[in-house]
Simulated scan of single mutants.
Amino acid sequence: MDRCIQYILNEARGLGASDIVMKEEQRAVYRIKGKLMESEVSVSKAQMSRFFTLMQPAGYVQEYIGGGTSGMDVGFEENGRYRANFFSSMGKKCAVIRVIKNEIPSLTELGLPEHLSKRVLNKRGLSLIVGKTGSGKSTSLASIAQDILMKEKVHMITLEDPVEFSYSGLKGELTQRELGTDFAGFERGIHDALRQSPDFLMIGEIRTLGALKAAISAAEAGHGIIGSIHSMGAARTLTRMLSMFQEQEKEFVRFQLSQNLNFILSQKLIYSESQTELDYELFINSTSMENTIREGRFHQIDNLLLLGEKQGMKRFKHKNKDES
């Protein structure tokens, strides 16, 4: 590992940065509490080329020449764990690196309710964590997964792009699979996992209609499915999911979701000078929510969340204008 890049990684972790942006012949940039801060250290063309060569998996050169990008897991024992995406800008090599925490925080440490993992264990079904990029979805998924595996002798299979966290001290069995290395696509990965004796599946991101159909079917078959979607709020997430289906399919899909959806946890990070706060909305699929989903009355969900506080539901503390 080049000493300059090693220094950047160490400095970013020491400053509590969530991301690092590196470009040829430019100073590295850190994202700290949502804001960008420029480092004093720049990365040369030769250093970026060596970094690319060191990190590229088999077949990466062909993809890069063709103009594609590649997301990959990059781990260094002495520095901790990182997630990197390599790409080009105006013909110059660039990398955006996510700094992964050395330890998976507990749900309590994240500021999330402890009963989430119990709900996954007891009800199984489809449990979703939603939010924008950088809202901590992967960390919350890992926290729920670790809590389950530390308490129960179950087999969990994860489908990730790329594999991020390392787990330890588990009572259960964990099989981590990485996109591009262990499976070709999330839809295929879900179907294959169902033949690998899972109790639970953790899906890093449900991106396509095929993956969504496979996840709903797996939940319907009695498996516990935990996955993430780029969305915000329960009502918007359900609307987005339904919009992926043909009109003639929607009534049946609403029925499937009403029966098999467990919860939707929507989250975002609120930054201040002194701290980073995780704000969340929790939709729990109660009897009244089941009817609402089945009948497609998503506009009523916000009011039902307010009425469902005694059942553990919660609305966002901080409401953005675009979420009104």
Rank of each mutant, 00 (worst) to 15 (best):
C4R: 04
L9Y: 03
A12S: 12
R13I: 12
G16I: 03
A17P: 13
V21F: 13
M22H: 12
E24T: 09
L36N: 05
M37H: 12
M37E: 10
E40W: 02
V41F: 09
F52P: 00
P57G: 10
A58N: 08
A58C: 06
V61K: 11
G66L: 07
G66A: 15
T69M: 13
G71A: 15
F76G: 02
G80K: 02
R83A: 11
A84G: 03
K92W: 00
V96C: 14
V99H: 03
I100H: 03
K101P: 04
I104M: 11
I104V: 12
L112Q: 03
L116K: 01
L116M: 08
K118R: 14
R124M: 04
L128P: 02
G131C: 10
G134M: 06
S135G: 14
K153W: 04
M156A: 01
T158G: 14
Y167P: 05
Y167M: 07
S168D: 10
L179I: 15
T181M: 14
G185R: 14
G185C: 15
G189P: 09
G189I: 07
P198A: 04
P198M: 06
D199I: 01
I203P: 07
I203T: 10
L209W: 00
A211K: 02
A214N: 02
S217F: 07
A218Y: 01
A221W: 00
G222W: 01
S231W: 04
R236S: 15
R240K: 15
M241F: 06
M244W: 03
E247I: 12
E247D: 09
F252P: 00
Q256M: 11
S258L: 03
S258C: 12
Q267V: 04
Q267N: 13
L269P: 03
L278A: 13
S288D: 11
R294T: 07
E295Y: 09
Q300M: 13
D302E: 11
L304V: 08
L305E: 07
G308P: 02
K310S: 15
K321V: 07
E323W: 02
